[in-house]
Design a protein around this nucleic acid. Structure first.
Length: 219
DNA sequence: ATATCGATTATCT
DNA sequence: GATAATCGATATG
């Protein structure tokens, strides 16, 4: 048997669709990191769709640059960006060559390789209640999977021979919840965040739009 | 429990 | 020069 035991890779055509469709369908799938003698696996429980050049919140809004070129390439490839001077975040490209669009991975439920994830995150687990600290949040999951731009940007996520890829195990999501995206200032109200309802590994305080800054008086 | 803030750098204006 | 698809720490109810 091959290293893809238990998990079936997704075809490139899976990603050759709108970011909305891909985001919804990615819920419940598995992100896999295969190294020489170890495997990390975690279920995708929260993602966001970014719509490309027409979406002011998307990096592709600025056009095809050195940073965003993967978004304008073929579907099914990793777009990794560095943010706030501290964190990497993982997307997968969607649509088709020449048309940008992507899905941001926001939270995972760890399945295999929990100890290695904790080492990569440089944290100690006190108990099961600490598990969300591993992969709940885009920066955290990237660190747990040792994802960096240098290592993974442009990587094919459809091949089980890739050290980072996406597979399926037959899991069927029960209820999917759609909310506004988190952490953006432009186009912040559009419902483009997809989560497995009730999953304990979903990031963030449940999406309450920040209460409008309101002055008691004005003069 | 929620709110605010500093860290730290690639990227774009 | 300002900003950012975040996180973790600290402050406050």
């Amino acid at each position: 048997m091959t290293a893809s035991n238990l998990f079936t890779p997704l075809a490139r055509s899976f990603f050759a669709r709108s970011p909305r469709a891909v985001a919804r369908e990615l819920l419940g799938k598995i992100l896999i990191r295969d190294d020489d003698d170890s495997r990390l696996a975690a279920r995708i429980v929260e993602v966001e769709a970014y719509l490309g050049e027409s979406d002011p919140a998307a990096h592709a809004y600025a056009g095809n640059t050195a940073r965003t070129s993967v978004l304008f390439g073929p579907p099914g490839y990793a777009y990794v960006y560095f943010i706030y001077g501290n964190h990497y975040c993982l997307n997968v490209s969607c649509e088709r060559e020449g048309k940008a669009g992507s899905v941001l991975f926001r939270a995972l439920e760890p399945l295999q390789g929990i100890e290695e994830m904790a080492r990569s995150r440089e944290i100690t687990l006190s108990g099961p209640r600490d598990l969300p600290k591993l992969t709940s949040g885009p920066g955290r999951l990237a660190q747990a999977f040792s994802i960096t731009r240098a290592r993974d940007n442009g990587r094919d996520l459809t091949s089980p021979n890739s050290s980072l890829w996406i597979g399926a195990d037959g899991f069927r999501p029960k209820t999917i919840q759609i909310t506004a995206r988190i952490g953006i200032t432009k186009a912040a109200d559009r419902p483009l965040r997809y989560v497995l309802k009730g999953n304990a590994f979903v990031s963030g305080r449940l999406s309450r739009p920040k209460p409008k800054p309101r002055k008691a008086f004005d003069m």
